[in-house]
Structure formats: structure tokens, C-alpha cells
């Protein structure tokens, strides 16, 4: 028996001059929900594609359930269920036909497939939609069908590439519940990528924060938040022209490193946060700096990300279009 579900060792992938994945090493334990957190274009999908043998690594090794991907790719494929970023249930096929197709592609017998279909539809809460065309489903239903579709061959590992991107809160929660259920009841190891902090925080036992192809931090959500080393984050929202001035004041009062992002300046502090915040507010009003708000909160994964990479995940979302286009261009090469 293999010790780990997935072992990634010094994995690198280059597309021409562009290094999409830069010397990543990871060990994913059996039964855990592991998250790869990072903005678009960070190298998450490239890592997943290499794991599935869809693209070849430039260097490094991947071991899945004790099997080397270069030698036993087909056996590994039987161990992995994939839920892709794009919802790709076939809209012109019924829920049942979608499941049956993949049962066949995983070389299951017809009896096994027919036995599995009602079970999976039940799991996804789609029993009554068995004969309905997937094209008529809502985004959340499609995603749930896609998720259980990846379970048809009883994989040991479920790989989800941004499972909730584009879903509203309600549907997102339903997909989360489904993933947790699969993880717990079927003892399936889950590897998921996400660009949502709440999702990583909520779902994952462990998280690797990935940016520009490199892992910048690895640990449980709590461990990561402790990396900030401070217990409170103070964030001041203002307009852009005042940002530098605000940052200057924050620096003067706390003596800590200020990070700015968008129209916000934030600072992580320890000690009497209330007193320091009061000082900050006084100083701001004395300088007649208009602010839109001030908040104090416990460090979040975004603060961790901000500290480690110098950019906020929230801001990268606005560059999403650009980043994904860049990623696509890179992949096409």
C-alpha cells in the first residue's frame, strides 16, 4: 500500500520561455481534502493536467497511489476521477446517458454501470432528472452531475479543477456538501484547485498557496493564518489618491510593513489593536484624509496571500479575463 495518495516531486512545466509550474513538490495524504489555492494562471490547471497525463512534465515525477505516472498512466487514470473547470456534461445527452458514456469509457460492464447510475443520481440529488437532457439543467445541477460522473468508476482520488467557479452561493454550498459527503462516506481523497479563499478555508484540510508556478505556502488553514505572526489585521479603505498618505500614517503609528491593494491599505499588528486603531483614526482625521471605512479582523487567507505574494487574490479576480487568456495562449503553444 502506498503511503500517500499523490506524491509530486520537483515538478516543472515550461511552455517555451514561460514556466507555468516551477519546481513544485507536494505530498497529499490519503483521505484528506487538499486545496491548491491561487489566482488564475498560477499553474493550478497545468499541475492537474500533468497529473492526468494530458500534458507531459518538463521535469519531475508524479506518483499516484504508489504508481509512477510515466509507467502506469492507464492504471492511474482508473484511480482518478476528474471534475473539470469547464462544466462538460454533454447538454445533448440525458443525465443517464452522460453517466453511461463515462462508465463505458472506464471499461465497466453494462451491469455495473446500470447498478451505479441510480446510486450516483441519488448522491447528486438528481434522481428525478434521470431522463432529462443535461442542457436543461441549472449550472449547479450540471456541476453536481459532472461531480458524480467522475465517481462512476469508484476512483480513489477525486480531482476537482475549480469546482464552484461561476456558481452562486446557494449552488456552491450544495457542491461543497456533495464533495464533503464523497470524501467522508466513500473515503475518497480530494484534490481541488480554487481561487476562492472562503472555499479553501471552508473545505480543505490542507492548502498549498500557489503563485506564478511556485508553492509559496503549505499547511492547514489555521497554520497558514498564523504565518502572519500577528493577531489582528487593520484595513483602511480610502480613495486611490489618498492611499499613499494613509499607508504613510499606518507605517508611522505601527512601525509595521503596510500592504496596499486596490483602494485599501492594511497592516497586521499585535498587541492592543483597539488602541492603535484609535490612534490611526485620530491621525487620519487630523490630516483631513477622507476614508471610506476602517475594519479590524482576524487574519484571513487573503491576508496570508497578500503578505506572501504582495497582491490580493480579490484583486487578481479582476484580471481574471487577462490571466486566463494568457494561460490559454501559453497552453496552445
Amino acid at each position: 500500500m502506498a503511503e500517500y495518495a499523490i506524491e509530486i516531486d520537483h515538478l516543472t512545466k515550461k511552455f517555451g520561455d514561460f514556466t507555468a509550474v516551477n519546481d513544485i513538490s507536494l505530498k497529499i495524504e490519503k483521505g484528506e481534502i487538499f486545496g491548491l489555492l491561487g489566482p488564475n494562471g498560477a499553474g493550478k490547471s497545468t499541475t492537474i493536467n500533468m497529473l492526468l497525463g494530458l500534458i507531459e512534465p518538463t521535469s519531475g515525477t508524479i506518483i499516484v497511489e504508489g504508481k509512477d505516472i510515466r509507467k502506469k498512466l492507464n492504471e492511474i487514470k482508473q484511480d482518478i476521477g476528474l471534475v473539470m473547470q469547464e462544466t462538460i456534461v454533454e447538454p445533448e445527452l440525458t443525465a443517464e446517458q452522460n453517466l453511461r458514456l463515462f462508465g463505458r469509457l472506464y471499461h465497466m460492464s453494462e451491469e455495473e454501470i446500470e447498478k451505479k447510475i441510480p446510486f450516483l443520481l441519488e448522491l447528486a440529488g438528481l434522481t428525478e432528472f434521470r431522463h432529462a437532457y443535461a442542457g436543461t439543467f441549472s449550472g449547479g445541477m450540471k456541476r453536481r452531475l459532472e461531480t458524480v460522473k467522475s465517481l462512476i468508476h469508484d476512483p480513489k482520488i477525486l480531482v476537482l479543477d475549480e469546482p464552484t467557479t461561476g456558481l452562486d452561493i446557494q449552488n456552491r454550498t450544495k457542491v461543497w456538501d456533495l464533495i464533503r459527503k464523497i470524501n467522508k462516506e466513500k473515503e475518497v481523497t480530494v484534490l481541488m484547485t480554487t481561487q476562492y479563499l472562503e472555499e479553501a478555508d471552508e473545505m480543505c484540510n490542507r492548502i498549498a498557496i500557489i503563485d506564478h508556478g511556485k508553492i509559496v505556502a503549505l499547511g492547514t488553514p489555521t497554520e497558514l493564518k498564523h504565518k502572519i505572526g500577528k493577531n489582528v489585521v487593520v484595513e483602511v479603505a480610502t480613495s486611490r489618491q489618498w492611499l499613499d498618505k494613509v499607508a504613510e500614517i499606518l507605517k508611522k503609528i505601527t512601525g509595521e510593513k503596510v500592504t496596499t491593494s486596490g483602494d485599501r491599505a492594511s497592516i497586521a499588528i499585535s498587541g492592543d489593536a483597539v488602541k492603535k486603531t484609535e490612534q490611526i483614526m485620530n491621525e487620519l482625521s487630523r490630516n483631513k484624509i477622507p476614508i471610506n471605512g476602517i475594519s479590524m479582523h482576524e487574519p484571513t487567507l487573503d491576508d496570508v496571500f497578500l503578505k506572501l505574494t504582495g497582491t490580493s487574490l480579490r484583486d487578481t479576480a479582476s484580471q481574471e479575463g487577462f490571466a486566463s487568456r494568457r494561460e490559454m495562449l501559453m497552453r496552445r503553444r
Binding site: G53, K77, M84, Q85, E86, I88, E90, L105, H107
Partner: peptide
């Protein structure tokens, strides 16, 4: 993405 999904199967 169907091609990718097919190629992820054996």
C-alpha cells in the same frame, strides 16, 4: 473540454 475529459479516461 470533452476531448480532455475523454483523454483523462483510460
Amino acid at each position: 473540454g470533452n476531448l480532455k475529459a475523454f483523454m483523462a479516461t483510460p
